[in-house]
Design a protein around this nucleic acid. Structure first.
Length: 588
RNA sequence: CGGGGUGUAGCUUAGCCUGGUAGAGCGCCUGGUUUGGGACCAGGAGGUCGCGAGUUCGAAUCUCGCCGCCCCGACCA
């Protein structure tokens, strides 16, 4: 039992001006956190208790799934990252942690970095310690602080520079075993989020800079989320928009018959899809080829899309470049022979085709028959362009952004879209890291093989905020039972009455022996203040002991999530409270 | 990093356009009256107006630079 007067819950009537979304405002108003700087937060006692709840639930589910907890350093030698496969991409978000201000290794090369995640630490450890198939599989995890110098911290704990994350790493002897580990983790995640009391759905996801073969994200549906989830209720298909595909292009699509030879025609001043759609050209966007130039690891490459499609940049990750970005106009002209707006990939028209790392085309361009594309001469386009006959394509792939309403790749029904907060991510990594760090094991035939890895993350502090975002009303937070900092709040309206505080202690003891944690509001405040604060901090079960009720011989029992108040005779109160606690705990 | 905004007491803010002694509400302290949904009265403490230059007799207010924070984009748990 905690007495409010001896605890620290600094509630606020008004929201600080820098909070935009409900959960961020409530985090601060309910006294859970305070900001130190952009993306940096102190966890006040109440917030810390929630964090500890989530941490413990996570630990229990991972242990049950065979996870082995350890603790890794947060200061990493930068050299370790240089040896890893993603230094170029990762260093942009890493804080440097040099021992001297200027660093030993020159102004550009940090000596130490703060860990944003731990593949680069766990893999060398496993390499050194695990060498036999007899010691596999293993799944190590930690729940610890992570540091990422986010370009734009946002929404309180939602995207912070320092945050708490569970990160796990599985090591298996082969692909089949690794997939088993992967799905065991998926199940553990589902149990974790269910126990927390938050709705998080698994969706197919892009692997991003992490690399690997496949991946799921766990999304809490919320308007304020950073990600778009594309889904189909009929088939159950759900994917991050970055990864989502649609059934737009039939598998057996036959190329349209060419109506004639390609023909160059003048288009002075026309450099946009829209301008070609307009008179006098009147070429529908879906009959145009859109030619984009990117630079991957220093070498330009082309991406060809339908004119009415958008590039889904994340999908370029499948091409295998370490870093890629849009090319600048200055980079484009020497290679292509024209400025952006007149570009195309018709055979023989590219000025310096040898400079290109490839021409990558979205499948959907196969829907275009006799289309229009730039001629790589400023002010000219080609018409009657056909994919198979006229374009030099290195490779087809899925590069376009899916739009809601397109057919689901499984059911053919229209796809839908909604926003989500990413609270967890699981990756089947493969051997990308184990090969790089030589984490190999010997099999029973004395053969060495790289271990097959998976890696897994849950944003614990982000989940905390996602719970609030998903579970609140105008008055405050509504904590699910298992995430609540306390499960029972006893409001003593007249704490100066000895019999009131005596009863509060008895009820607290009853609730505690039934398994709840109890906060007693014994402050010398007016009832209105106590009720407002009670609603704000959102403890699931509220008991009210007031002078009036005591005269009638009753206390009140109210669930935060419900409106109605039950009056309970004092004589039955202890038993009723204990029963309510047991019932709620059983349901949670 | 690009675009937009903003910075006045612990919190929310007025004042800035049109330069002239810095105001309010909440919170805090003292006393009193209150006591079942953020009470009332009286008194009080609390400000280098983000920092630095400049213009001016005089700058919270005008100009320039810097910094912090917030929002939109790229990145992520």
């Amino acid at each position: 039992m905690k007495l409010w007067s001896q605890f620290f819950i600094p509630t606020l009537k008004e929201s600080p001006s820098d909070a935009e979304i409900a959960s961020h405002k409530l985090l601060i108003r309910a006294g859970l956190v305070r900001k130190l700087g952009g993306g940096l937060y102190t966890y006040l006692p109440l917030g810390l208790r929630v964090m500890q709840k989530l941490t413990q639930l996570c630990r229990e589910e991972l242990d049950r799934a065979g996870g082995i907890e350890l603790w890794m350093p947060h200061v990493h030698p930068a050299e370790l990252w240089e040896q890893g496969p993603r230094w170029a991409a990762a260093r942009e978000i890493m804080f440097r942690a040099d021992s001297a201000g200027d660093g030993k290794r020159g102004p550009k090369d940090p000596e130490f970095v703060l860990g944003p995640t731990h593949e680069e630490v766990i893999t060398p450890l496993v390499r050194a310690e695990i060498t036999s198939y007899r010691d596999l599989p293993k799944n190590f995890y930690q729940i610890a602080t992570k540091f990422r110098n986010e370009i734009r911290p946002r929404y309180g704990l939602m995207r912070a520079r320092e945050f708490v994350m569970m990160d796990a790493y599985s090591f298996d002897a082969n692909d089949e075993a690794s997939i088993k580990s992967y799905f065991a983790m998926k199940t553990a995640y589902e149990k974790f989020f269910a126990r927390v009391g938050v709705t998080a759905i698994a969706v197919e996801a892009d692997t991003g800079v992490m690399g690997g073969s496949f991946s799921h994200e766990f999304m809490v549906p919320a308007e304020v989320g950073d990600d778009d989830v594309i889904y189909c209720e009929a088939s159950g298909y759900a994917a991050n928009r970055e990864k989502a595909t649609s059934g737009l292009v039939p598998k057996d699509l036959a190329d349209a018959a060419p109506v004639g030879a390609t023909e160059k025609f003048p288009t002075p001043g026309v450099v946009t899809i829209a301008a070609l759609e307009a008179a006098p050209y009147n070429v529908a966007a879906d009959h145009q080829f859109k030619t984009l130039v990117y630079v991957g690891d220093g070498k330009p490459f082309l991406v060809i899309l339908r004119g009415n499609d958008e590039l889904e940049e994340a999908k370029l990750g499948a091409l295998g470049f370490g870093l890629f970005r849009p090319a600048t106009p200055e980079e484009i002209e020497p290679v292509m022979g024209a400025k952006p707006g007149s570009l195309g990939a018709v055979k023989g028209t590219i000025k310096d085709p040898a400079a290109l790392a490839g021409v990558f085309a979205d499948h959907a361009i196969r829907l275009i028959g006799n289309g229009v594309t730039g001629a790589n001469t400023d002010g000219f386009h080609f018409r009657n362009v056909n994919v198979a006959r006229d374009l030099a394509i290195t490779k087809f792939g899925d590069f376009r952004r899916v739009r809601p309403g397109e057919p689901c790749p499984k059911s053919g029904q229209p796809l839908q879209s909604r926003r989500g907060i990413e609270v967890g991510h699981i990756f089947k990594l493969g051997t990308k890291y184990s090969e790089k760090f030589a984490a190999v094991y010997m099999d029973d035939q004395k053969q060495n093989h790289p271990m097959v890895m998976g890696c897994y993350g849950i944003g614990i502090s982000r989940t905390l905020q996602a719970v609030i975002e998903q579970s609140h009303d105008n008055d405050g937070i509504i904590w699910p039972w298992n995430a609540a900092p306390f499960q029972v709040l006893i409001c003593v309206l007249d704490p100066q009455l000895p019999e009131a505080m005596d009863l509060a202690r008895k009820l607290a003891a009853a609730a505690e022996s039934a398994g709840a944690e109890v906060l007693v509001d014994d402050r010398a405040e007016r009832p209105g203040v106590k009720f407002k604060d009670a609603d704000l901090i959102g403890i699931p079960l509220r008991l009210t002991i007031g002078g009036k009720g005591l005269k009638e011989g009753v206390i009140e029992l109210k669930w935060r999530a419900q409106k109605d108040i039950a009056k309970v005779p004092v004589a039955e109160a202890e038993a009723r409270v204990a029963a309510a606690v047991r019932e709620a705990a059983a349901k949670a």
